[in-house]
């Protein structure tokens, strides 16, 4: 049992007051390790809320640096961070909120040959990248390592999220099978996104991570939550594990991780670039 000091009791009081979290739930949060893949539109709010919640160890993987065009939505990066590695910028804000957090940064591309080793240390992964090769890579690696994760995607005014618990619920590949042809993916710079959508979806993903760790509530497993912020329509679509899923089905055809070709955004290698 963790003996919380007075400052921690004050800091985490709103969690401790919650019947579904309480002292025990806060202890779990303080001991938890969560990896955020992509420190962009989604990863930024996730990092801030996990830090605020006292998640003991937060890992951040991103190979990119902060650009001025990121600041419209990637709220862990400030004007003075332009040019900094996103992982360093995010770490600065995490520690500014909560100096007790242990932060691990991975300023590198996530690839088939390094991802399993990186994610293995974590209890939960939050995937918030903008590209399908990395989304599929994270899904497959998490299935192979048995690590639960949250998928998140945003585009224009829309967002979607699902939570995958390997061996228990439908995975990203059950639903989406394989990356869309690169030339069909709308070029990110052309599609655009309303900045606040990143916050809406990122906080949903952060909430899923906190719920998984504390055991509170029901996760977005076997469920695709999608919303259209133009009219604030939220919809849950029931999903099912697919017997013919190539990674978690009865006769999986995928036994090794795949580095898919990147298209669309002109990203050349399997970068953990954030949305």
């Amino acid at each position: 049992m963790i003996e919380f000091n007075e400052e921690q009791l004050q800091r985490y009081s709103r969690h401790i007051l919650l019947a579904d979290v309480g002292v025990e739930g806060q202890e779990k949060l303080c001991r938890a390790k969560v990896l955020i893949v992509g420190a962009g539109g989604l990863g930024a709010p996730v990092a801030l809320y996990l830090a605020a919640a006292g998640v003991g160890t937060i890992g951040i993987a991103d190979a990119d640096s902060v650009e001025i065009s990121n600041l419209q939505r990637q709220i862990s990066h400030f004007h003075h961070n332009i040019g900094d590695a996103k992982v360093d910028s995010a770490r600065e804000k995490i520690l500014a909120i909560n100096p007790e957090i242990k932060v691990n940064t991975y300023y590198e591309y996530l690839r088939a040959d390094n991802i399993r080793e990186i994610i293995r240390d974590y209890d939960f992964v939050v995937e918030g990248t903008d590209n399908f090769p990395t989304k599929f890579l994270v899904n497959d690696a998490c299935i192979m390592e048995g690590i639960p994760f949250s998928h998140g995607g945003i585009l224009r005014f829309d967002g979607q999220a699902m939570t995958v618990v390997p061996g228990k619920s439908a995975c990203y590949r059950c639903v989406f099978r394989e990356p869309p042809p690169p030339d069909a993916v709308p070029s990110c710079s052309q599609a655009g996104v309303l900045g606040a959508i990143a916050g809406m979806l990122g906080t949903i993903q952060a909430a899923e991570a906190l719920k998984f760790i504390t055991g509170a509530g029901e996760l977005l497993t076997d469920t695709l939550l999608s919303f259209d912020a133009r009219n604030m329509d939220f919809r849950k679509t029931r999903l099912h594990c697919q017997e013919n899923c190539p990674i978690c089905g009865k006769n999986p055809g995928i036994h090794e991780l795949i580095d898919y070709e990147h298209g669309g955004c002109g990203i050349k290698s399997s970068k953990s670039v954030a949305a």
């Binding site: 049992m1 009791l9 401790i16 309480g22």
Partner: peptide, 14 residues
């Protein structure tokens, strides 16, 4: 309130 409840819950958890 609410720190009195926080302390109560901490004591109960032990």
């Amino acid at each position: 309130c609410p720190m009195n409840l926080v302390y109560t819950k901490v004591e109960l958890s032990r």
